[in-house]
């Protein structure tokens, strides 16, 4: 038994969990081609949710701030990107890949810039007065979320908005009899790039060192002479921008968005942060991948359980590891 545990640890420990889930799913599903499609869908969904959740996890870990308004950044990111794409519709339909990419790039940049600005505003105006007070944080960030949703309603209206996709991301690639949607592969790769960038920043730079130390013990970092509050504004802005980027990706994935999108995703995002372990980017990725895979497998195997699958996953993981899969050291 101990030997088995050691072997598992050596090959990655809890990181193996998604692999185990995927293998079990393969047995249950039977047909390899459906399994591949579901797995790719799960990984893509996981990566998009990772984008949305990573900022929330760091913000909570670093400043102990509960931001229930985080999903507003997701919604805004989706609508800002959708508007830019609609506005550049001519470029999207063009045969030139260059114009396609330029339109997509413009939409992402707009979402990110909006996220940075909104994050700065949110942190300085709404969060700063309620540091160290969880109850007020919950109340005021929930209030801000309601206001944000109303702003979206006022600006974009209540009817669902269609999101045009660039031509080059339409369709699928066929490998044997397995079809892989290009957009999903794209979402996965983009998420992976962001993860690697975050990982390197956190683990290879002095700013990252300060953030990791701050997540563990904020007071001590200040007692060593660093203004955590200023660093926190920056982390908050980056987290908001990533949420907006996640929203933009999600918009292109769903192709039809409503103002309720952020609120619907918020529950999933919180589940990911909780099962991943607060304050750790590795944990958030692991949690997001697990949620993405399980949602897709269960949706196929037992559609009636699909809605409950995330909650069940969270309960199972918390019973096993009350602090989540890979929490930051506290």
């Amino acid at each position: 038994m101990d030997q088995l545990r050691m072997t598992i640890e050596r090959f990655g420990g809890v990181n193996l969990l998604p692999v185990a889930v995927a293998l079990v799913a393969l047995v249950l599903i039977g047909a390899p081609s459906s399994w591949v499609t579901l797995t790719v869908a799960g990984l893509a969904m996981g990566m998009m949710i990772f984008l949305m959740a990573s900022g929330l996890s760091l913000v909570f870990g670093l400043m102990d701030v509960l931001n229930f308004g985080h999903s507003a950044f997701v919604s805004f990111g989706a609508f800002v990107a959708a508007s830019v794409l609609a506005w550049l519709g001519g470029w999207l339909g063009a045969d030139s890949i260059l114009l396609n990419v330029a339109a997509l790039f413009a939409a992402f940049v707009a979402a990110i810039l909006f996220g940075l600005a909104a994050g700065w505003f949110f942190e300085t105006i709404i969060i700063k007065p309620v540091y160290h007070d969880h109850l007020r944080q919950i109340l005021i960030t929930m209030g801000a979320l309601i206001v944000a949703e109303q702003i979206i309603l006022a600006v974009w209206g209540g009817t669902p908005m269609t999101v045009p996709r660039p031509n080059f991301l339409e369709g699928s690639i066929l490998i044997g009899d397995v079809a892989i949607e290009i957009y999903r592969a794209f979402a996965f790769i983009l998420g992976l790039i962001v993860y690697i960038a975050l990982y390197l920043t956190l683990n290879r730079t002095r700013i990252g060192l300060l953030i990791r130390a701050g997540v563990e013990n904020r007071e001590m970092v200040e007692a060593l002479g660093f203004r955590i509050d200023r660093l926190f504004v920056a982390v908050f802005m980056v987290g908001s921008a990533l949420a907006a980027l996640g929203g933009a990706m999600w918009a292109g994935y769903e192709t039809l968005i409503t103002p309720a999108l952020g609120g619907e995703l918020m529950i999933v995002v919180f589940i990911v942060v909780i099962i991943g372990g607060l304050g750790s980017i590795e944990g958030t990725l692991l949690g997001a991948i697990m949620v993405g895979l399980v949602a897709n497998y269960v949706g196929f195997l037992a559609p009636k359980l699909a809605l409950a699958s995330n909650m069940l996953l969270m309960m199972a993981i918390l019973l096993w590891r009350p602090n989540g899969l890979r929490p930051a050291v506290k």
Partner: peptide
């Protein structure tokens, strides 16, 4: 006030 997740070296560098 040790940062447990950081190495001894990183604790001192900070």
């Amino acid at each position: 006030g040790i940062f447990g997740g950081l190495t001894v070296e990183e604790n001192l560098i900070l």
